[in-house]
């Protein structure tokens, strides 16, 4: 199964923002937008749902912290109580620094791993870029020619209106 793509290349972030917004309003199917840096508002212009990664971070951070508190309690006051400076077995203030570190560790590492899994970024994966210069100074909007009603001439005129420097049609093999 292959799909036909229309690729618009822009030189300024305002242009890709406006072009993205207009394409979505007119009901075209957005495949993706490429930019050399995070363009403020592009996610909203594309209509992307908010990322769910913060929830992974929060849940695993909390789980890591809870596990560590329980583990320290278990080691220092249940399994092998050790008298440290006459403090009570179960001394919560002493647990705080390590709990904090473990929380940061689990939250941080799990967020990165979750991101890699969601984005399917595995070692050795080849970058798929519409143009090499999107990593430097170009902005690219990729639309799908979803059905027969997709009027290439009209979309070209639309993107031209937003100062597209180049418009190409491509066929993507799945």
């Amino acid at each position: 199964m292959s799909r036909r793509l229309l690729i618009g290349v822009f030189e300024r972030e305002e242009d890709i923002l406006n072009a993205t917004r207009a394409s979505r309003t007119l009901g075209y199917t957005l495949v993706d937008a490429y930019a050399p840096y995070a363009v403020h508002g592009l996610d909203e212009a594309m209509g992307l749902a908010p990322s769910r990664l913060p929830w992974v971070c929060f849940a695993l951070g909390l789980a890591g912290a809870a596990f560590k508190v329980w583990f320290e309690f278990w080691t220092t006051s249940v399994n092998w109580p050790v008298n440290v400076g006459g403090k009570p077995w179960n001394s919560l203030p002493a647990f705080v620094p390590i709990t904090f570190e473990v929380m940061v560790l689990t939250a941080g590492v799990s967020t990165v791993l979750a991101f890699l899994a969601v984005a399917r970024l595995l070692p050795g994966r080849k970058a798929r870029l519409p143009r090499a210069r999107v990593t430097d100074d170009e902005f690219v909007l990729v639309l799908e020619e979803s059905d027969a009603a997709f009027d290439v001439a009209r979309v070209r005129r639309l993107l031209d209106g937003f100062n597209a420097v180049r418009i190409e049609e491509r066929v993507e093999e799945a």
């Binding site: 400076g85 006459g86 203030p93 002493a94 705080v96 620094p97």
Partner: peptide
Amino acid sequence: WFSQYMLIWYAN
């Protein structure tokens, strides 16, 4: 805030 408290609590 916690660091100051913990160091003093620990050294006692």
